[in-house]
Design a protein around this nucleic acid. Structure first.
Lengths: 218, 218
DNA sequence: ACCGCATGTTACCGCTGTCAACATCCGGCT
DNA sequence: AGCCGGATGTTGACAGCGGTAACATGCGGT
């Protein structure tokens, strides 16, 4: 039982690293501490990761996934049925979820974007062909369980275009606008100059931001 | 003469620290290296700064100042005379300057916001309800050499309201919208997922962003 | 049964931030 | 003048970090 060889260390390391990141952000992901908490000697990690940054990148991926999860979850909560209001509500939901995730999970959020080896998305997604659990035939437009917040945003915006909420020409920079606004809002309120704005005021401000994004697109 | 006592070390340290920050971001501001480059032994800094973070905070202040400077400079370049187009152009100028500064001076920009002891502006600037405007027959509204980007944005937005470009109610969350969008854009393109977007495409996207900010306000 | 190779360990290096003790200079007191 | 105390700078030490190198262990294929 007490395997000298841990068996599957890599995922275990990532797991504890995620915990550390959650608790203390990127600075908290200290290789030696990760090893310590995993009950293994430091340097063990070097059999699985080239260096600390590689581990951090892995954690970043997990964080991105959780962010995307939070967004889809909030999106799924939209009850509206009429196409256009629904699309709008879903767009707002993603934005809200993004910001709320950032504030609820500052460590993970920070890691997700602080890791210099993060997602680049310069190119089109390659459809990784993961033979994941084949779900029941989804009749809705929710699309596949995306792990990429950016792609998620893209889908929502596509819906909005289909529903007539956005002209195709304004669709162009839409990702950048939405993402920038929401990301900036999150960052500024997280460790930026707006970090001391009280929560209720912040929520109010967020809704205003979503209003104005919406207005900027329609 | 080459005093054993350096004379005015504190500013000298800050200066070299700024240089380091400029070259390599927050991580580059290494206490020992700062001391080394200043031609002084490590620990000398501890007579002037409680710890590294305090020095970094000082650098952050300088960086903020430079950012504000870049913004005012770009604003000053606006030639338009008609009030409303001028106000709009000035708003766009600040946004453009903000992003361009971030990309041209990534190190400083990063330090400006990474330093955890940065500007807080938790409270409103006391909402003077604009009792002025009747006192002095001022020549121009350029205002004093502001050192705070946020205040600068506030001034520009006030101008925009005066010029009729923004209704007073939409003025409310305007700072947050503009700042968030522009800051997010900068961050995402600097070390975020959009970092590999080619420069020309980025510029184009930025103008679109400014368009949409504008549309969201009007 | 054996041996190779992946995996984990111990030892060490240079680097950092920070504390403590010591050295030096300057300005004010007598 | 001469002294002296506090501010300023220096040297020395320590723990913790990321990373490399050499060594130990044990699983899997033969």
């Amino acid at each position: 039982m007490g395997t000298y060889h841990h068996g599957n260390l890599r995922p275990a390391l990532v797991e504890t690293a995620v915990g550390l990141a959650q608790a203390s952000g990127p600075e908290g992901v200290v290789l030696r501490e990760v090893a310590r908490q995993t009950g293994v000697s430091h340097n063990a990690a070097y059999r699985h990761f080239a260096d600390r940054d590689e581990l951090l990148a892995e954690v970043a991926q997990v964080a991105m996934l959780e962010l995307a999860g939070a967004m889809t979850a909030e999106m799924a909560g939209v009850a509206e049925r009429e196409p256009l209001p629904r699309a709008v509500a879903r767009l707002r939901a993603t934005g809200r979820a993004y910001v709320h995730f950032a504030l609820a999970q500052p460590g993970l959020f920070e890691v997700a974007f602080a890791a210099h080896g993060g997602v680049t998305l310069d190119d089109e997604p390659d459809e990784p062909a993961e033979p994941d659990e084949s779900d029941e035939p989804e009749a809705e437009d929710d699309g596949p369980p995306e792990g990429d917040p950016y792609a998620l945003l893209g889908l929502v915006l596509d819906d909005l275009v289909r529903a007539g909420g956005v002209t195709t020409e304004r669709r162009a920079g839409a990702e950048a606008l939405c993402w920038s606004a929401v990301h900036g809002f999150a960052v500024l309120h997280l460790h930026g100059p707006l970090r001391d704005v009280p929560a209720d005021e912040r929520e109010q401000s967020l809704e205003l931001l979503l209003d104005q994004i919406q207005r900027g697109l329609l």
